[in-house]
Simulated scan of single mutants.
Amino acid sequence: MDLNTAVPAPSDAPLKVAVILGSNREGRFGPVVAQWFIGRAADHPDIETELIDVAETEPPATGTAAVEVAPRLARADAFVVLTPEYNHSYPAPLKNLIDRHFAEWQAKPVAFVSYGGISGGLRAVEHLRQIFAELHTVTVRDTVSFHNAGALFDDGGAPKDPVQADGAAKRMLDQLVWWGRALREARTRHPYGG
């Protein structure tokens, strides 16, 4: 299927946003952040989310099949990449997922939610911006970042002080919706030739 000639969605249809959980480490904190973020996105009337977990996209050592990701990325209007920071960058499984695809990313917006130690994953995000520019995406300016993330969430997976995080998520999602609608309309009128 030509990814640029899919049946266009109505301009006011909710954006299909693929939320990509970028870590597959045992004991990872990412699912806590993902659950919180998907809850915030559910409050936004212009977004429908689908979680893509890198832990499910690669065949595990037992030899079972990986989840097929290409069609899920292709049908997305926009992406939110949720990444930790490992050794001043993003995880290898996330890089592998990104590099296995090309046309699925083109002419779509990408936003970032990051978490980590003192830097909150921001160095990982800056590296990802360079990668996604090469893939012909538009990255939104605002991010959501959790510094020393483990201490910021309670045992139920909710931020202890949600006001700042909720505000950052709303700003980022508003930008993602604007870019998502603009680029969806542009792809409908003029297939991207990058």
Results as ranks from 00 to 15, higher is better:
134 E>I: 00
127 H>W: 11
116 G>V: 11
62 T>Y: 11
33 V>H: 03
70 A>Q: 13
102 F>V: 04
33 V>F: 05
77 D>E: 10
142 D>V: 07
73 L>V: 11
43 D>L: 10
62 T>D: 15
70 A>C: 00
194 G>F: 15
78 A>I: 07
7 V>K: 14
154 D>K: 05
19 V>G: 02
18 A>K: 06
135 L>A: 05
46 D>N: 11
79 F>I: 07
35 Q>A: 15
169 A>E: 00
156 G>R: 15
25 R>H: 09
86 Y>R: 15
14 P>K: 12
146 F>S: 11
15 L>Q: 03
29 F>C: 07
96 N>L: 14
30 G>W: 07
181 R>E: 14
125 V>P: 01
46 D>R: 13
191 P>Q: 12
79 F>Q: 05
188 T>Q: 10
28 R>E: 03
58 E>D: 15
71 P>Y: 10
98 I>S: 00
29 F>K: 10
61 A>I: 14
142 D>C: 03
118 I>H: 11
177 V>A: 08
184 R>T: 14
179 W>V: 01
28 R>M: 06
65 A>Q: 14
80 V>I: 15
49 T>S: 11
190 H>E: 12
127 H>F: 09
53 D>T: 04
34 A>G: 08
93 P>A: 11
125 V>W: 03
51 L>N: 03
90 Y>S: 09
73 L>N: 09
145 S>D: 07
86 Y>N: 14
61 A>T: 14
108 K>H: 07
87 N>F: 10
104 E>C: 00
65 A>V: 06
38 I>A: 02
158 A>M: 12
150 G>I: 04
18 A>T: 10
157 G>K: 11
46 D>A: 15
148 N>L: 05
169 A>F: 01
87 N>L: 14
13 A>P: 07
33 V>I: 13
29 F>Q: 08
92 A>C: 06
140 V>E: 00
150 G>M: 08
78 A>M: 06
106 Q>A: 10
190 H>P: 00
130 Q>D: 02
185 E>N: 13
133 A>M: 12
123 R>T: 05
32 V>T: 15
89 S>E: 09
55 A>M: 06
40 R>V: 00
8 P>E: 05
24 N>M: 09
26 E>R: 15
148 N>I: 00
31 P>M: 10
155 D>L: 14
8 P>C: 08
133 A>N: 13
75 R>V: 04
22 G>R: 09
175 Q>H: 09
171 R>A: 10
45 P>N: 07
191 P>K: 10
115 Y>R: 13
66 A>L: 02
192 Y>S: 11
154 D>E: 00
128 L>Q: 09
60 P>A: 10
109 P>G: 05
55 A>F: 03
83 T>E: 01
10 P>M: 04
168 A>P: 04
165 A>M: 01
136 H>T: 04
70 A>R: 15
19 V>N: 03
143 T>P: 00
194 G>R: 12
12 D>A: 12
7 V>I: 13
145 S>P: 10
143 T>G: 05
186 A>L: 15
80 V>W: 09
64 T>M: 06
90 Y>P: 08
161 D>W: 01
148 N>G: 03
72 R>V: 03
25 R>N: 07
54 V>M: 02
44 H>Y: 02
14 P>A: 12
175 Q>R: 09
159 P>H: 05
128 L>M: 12
192 Y>I: 04
87 N>I: 13
148 N>F: 06
